[in-house]
């Protein structure tokens, strides 16, 4: 397995704004890598540098062994770009615009296969101006695939979709992954990264605040589990067999534990002996969303504190 993308110490400034402040990562061939972060975190800057649209301010970047800044035709022949916003030729049909693109690439995909993959069979003879927003996005995906690329950039592929359209797109993107393509995905949807990516990097304020598999991100697999329930009448926190804390907002008590199985056994054993019912009993781990919000939130807070310091 080779390395598809290698980024080291990447920085990007626009005038006075530092959008990317020293980011390093690499993507293996065949991997689906998600860049996750809120709007303005620097995702698009990073991706557009890798795609060759922007020049970096510092650092080294290699995409399929080449420097994207040089804009070589050889590199462009091997990547597929799905942009956030793009319309193409309003007066050509789906089939025509894809067929046109096959002449641009040395080893293009089959037009029918690509139309089938994105599910636009019924629209193949429709002019692009007649497509709905969702169909347009599927066409964007098709245009990214028509060159039979080794590496695909998906920039927020489902932004603005309704839930069922998002699910449908995920199936399509999963299919891509099964073809062995390397995918770099940007998104601000947690569940999207969780469904699609092998590896996720959370970016906030121009730096990576966490990187890992969706399961382990931010130490999620080691994080304390929460056991929650409502305190039965006449029982105080001190009566419980395991240490607990009150959650006043929810009106419940919470047990934070690294060993939820043992803690739960002691708790329930204790309750059953006393014929007590623990209303609303649940065990949860922090969701990826919780981790993400915490990471992105911390970074935003630090940034605003720094800004305050700078102004005072």
């Amino acid at each position: 397995m080779g390395v598809a993308v290698a980024v080291d110490g990447l920085q990007k400034s626009y005038d006075t704004v530092e959008a990317v402040k020293g980011v390093s990562f690499s993507i293996e061939e065949g991997e689906v890598f998600a860049l996750l972060g809120p709007n303005g975190a620097g995702k698009t800057s990073i991706v557009e540098i890798l795609e060759g649209y922007r020049k970096r301010s510092a650092g080294t970047v290699e995409v399929l062994g080449m420097d994207p800044e040089k804009g070589s035709r050889r590199l462009k022949e091997r990547i597929g770009i799905v942009l956030q916003e793009s319309t193409t030729e309003p007066y050509l049909t789906v089939e025509e615009v894809l067929r046109q693109r096959t002449f641009w690439y040395p080893r293009p995909s089959n037009v029918d296969d690509v139309i089938g993959l994105v599910g636009l069979e019924e629209k193949r003879r429709a002019r692009l101006r007649t497509l709905s927003g969702g169909q347009q996005r599927r066409l964007d995906l098709a245009l990214g695939l028509i060159g039979n690329p080794d590496l695909i950039f998906l920039d927020e592929p489902t932004t603005g979709f309704d839930p069922s359209a998002r699910r449908a797109s995920w199936v399509i993107i999963r299919n891509l992954c099964s073809l062995g393509k390397t995918v770099l995905l940007t998104t601000h949807y947690m569940d999207e990264a969780q469904h699609l990516a092998n590896r996720v990097a959370v970016i906030a304020g121009g730096v990576f605040v966490a990187e890992g598999t969706p399961d382990s991100l931010g130490g999620r697999n080691q994080a304390a589990a929460n056991i929650r329930f409502s305190l039965p009448e006449g029982i105080t926190l001190q009566d419980l067999p395991v240490p607990a804390r009150p959650d006043k907002v929810a009106g419940e008590v919470v047990i934070d534990t690294q060993e939820p199985t043992a803690a739960l056994a002691r708790l329930t054993g204790w309750a059953v002996e006393r014929h007590l019912e623990l209303a609303g009993l649940t065990v949860t781990r922090p969701s990826l969303e919780d981790v993400y919000l915490e990471l992105a939130g911390d970074a935003a807070e630090r940034a605003s504190q720094n800004a305050m310091k700078a102004t005072t």
């Binding site: 793009s86 319309t87 641009w104």
Partner: peptide
């Protein structure tokens, strides 16, 4: 303005 030129720029067509 529709982003077509940007897309072309990212494709291998000179």
């Amino acid at each position: 303005e529709a982003g077509t030129l940007k897309r072309v720029r990212g494709a291998p067509l000179p």
